[in-house]
Design a protein around this nucleic acid. Sequence first.
RNA 1: UGCCCCUUCGUCCAAUGGCAGGACAGUGGCCUUUGGAGCCACGAAUCUUGGUUCGAAUCCAAGAGGGGCAACCA
Length: 561
Amino acid sequence: MSEAQPRNNFIRELVAADVATGRFGRPVATRFPPEPNGYLHIGHAKSICLNFGLAQEFGGRCNLRFDDTNPFTEDMKYVEAIRHDIRWLGFEWSEERYASDYFDTLYEVAERLVRNGGAYVDSQDEEAIRENRGTVTEPGTPSPHRGRSVEENLDLLRRMKAGEFPDGAHVLRAKIDMAHPNMIMRDPLLLRIRHASHYRLGDAWCIYPLYDFAHGLSDAIEGITRSLCTLEFKDNRDIYDWLVRAAGYEHPPLQVEFARLELDYTIVSKRKLLRLVNEGHVTGWDDPRMPTIAGLRRRGVTPEAIRTFADTIGVARKPARVEMATFEHAVRNDLNMRVPRVMCVVSPLKVVLTNYPEGQVEELEASYYPHDVPLTGSRMIPFSRELWIEREDFLENPPKKFFRLTPGREVRLRYGYLITCREVVKDDRGQIIELHCTYDPTTRGGDAPDGRKVQGTIHWVSAARGIDCEVRLYDKLFTVPDPEAGGNDDDFTAYVNPESLVVVQGAKVEPSVLSDPVESRYQFERVGYFVQDATDSTPARPVFNRTVTLRDSWAKVKPQA
RNA sequence: UGCCCCUUCGUCCAAUGGCAGGACAGUGGCCUUUGGAGCCACGAAUCUUGGUUCGAAUCCAAGAGGGGCAACCA
């Protein structure tokens, strides 16, 4: 499946200009640099599409680099999940690298910085460092250790590395300017002591670089040309440039910032997503309500839909909040053209065809695809005297423009027969328990030989041969468009949508799906797109996750109950 | 409050000094064996005020509004 030309954006123009002028003297090189401390989400997908897409388009390369500088939070299981998700999205990296590959080089740079007076060992505690940094309106105060001699600094740094000091005893800081208007530049921390096992390197190190120290230099080592990151790193660009210059790289990479994706009714903060998992608001990183790649996959979303979505939203420097409708459109648009239609009654109401022979079952042919989808194929569906129809497809006292079944009205059973409702059967409490209808034997397949038109077509499943299944109706994760808006970090869980998952037992699906593998996607006609759940669905007990509803123009005209 | 960034239809993105355009959403219609899909049409924006220019969304200035930065997180 070919995707349209990527739409233009300012980064693409920068890269095109680089190529035209030969600015870096090397081919286009980008990187996707996740920290292996959580799962990738839809926001990362935007970055992945950008970085890998640019490399592809300009004949360059794109590395996958794990930014693993914090031994407290990182884990190999995240590395594996991240690799899997990127490949599932349809991208392959040129090389797999790790910031931890560069710890030796980073340490050499640190010593060199110390030798030429560009860095010093500070022995203030964490709190003192923070206080002495000053505020946005007041300059910081230099550390009492700022004037240490090169010899002393070198000695301390080596002993830090050798493990002679406990966590927090010393840090290595760049010596820049404690009064710098950019807070980031007030002698930023480079190395800190952490007596912790690294998930990859074990106990080889007890000093670990901070993001600012590791990132730009890692880019430079890999020969990255444009280092793409999100807007909140704008201020870090100063230290990025300072470091790659200090380390002596020619034609160093250039950082370019773009706006991260904010999607309505969900969140894309790894830290907050982790909380949803830990506090049990969802069942895991791959809960289909999660905006993670793993969650979207389990929800039934395709990689193509995600890539199209990424292209649709574009890339800019303005913080942007995208409507869920934009995402849903990308999903429906893709699914519409590729998945077979089958019938499933989510909330069944029994229909008895009083003039249909008892015990008879016929097999009717039903196309998998509508006329306007260029795919072919069909299956046979059993038709019998007793059927299930959707409870909401019958109304005893219908409002205007209700085209479905009502007393005395004729409707079409899709690919079946025209039926007319003759009698409404209720229980003692007045609840409708079944409908008695008659069918017109001359309308097999759904066409009337006399050419009469029926306004409504409804879906159905044979009661004799329908399969019991579980249907999981997923909806937006939060009840408000921006759950993080309050500013209070703790508030967002209060907005978790209690109806984000509605589990329906006793739905009835046509038997054809039994032979399909798990993760098969369908459109349940008139209901929505669904996928057989990857982990819970079995032939004995099929489970279907709703990926997205169909557009429902009836919902707009329907009078509110 | 210091520094930095941003500001175009309801939303997202184009227009790179020369007719403000697309997508999503919305509205009306056509079509329809999915109230799906598709097709047609309609409405909808350059934050404000000055300046430069034959000509400004675009360049300059001021203002307003929004966002980021004061973790030994990334």
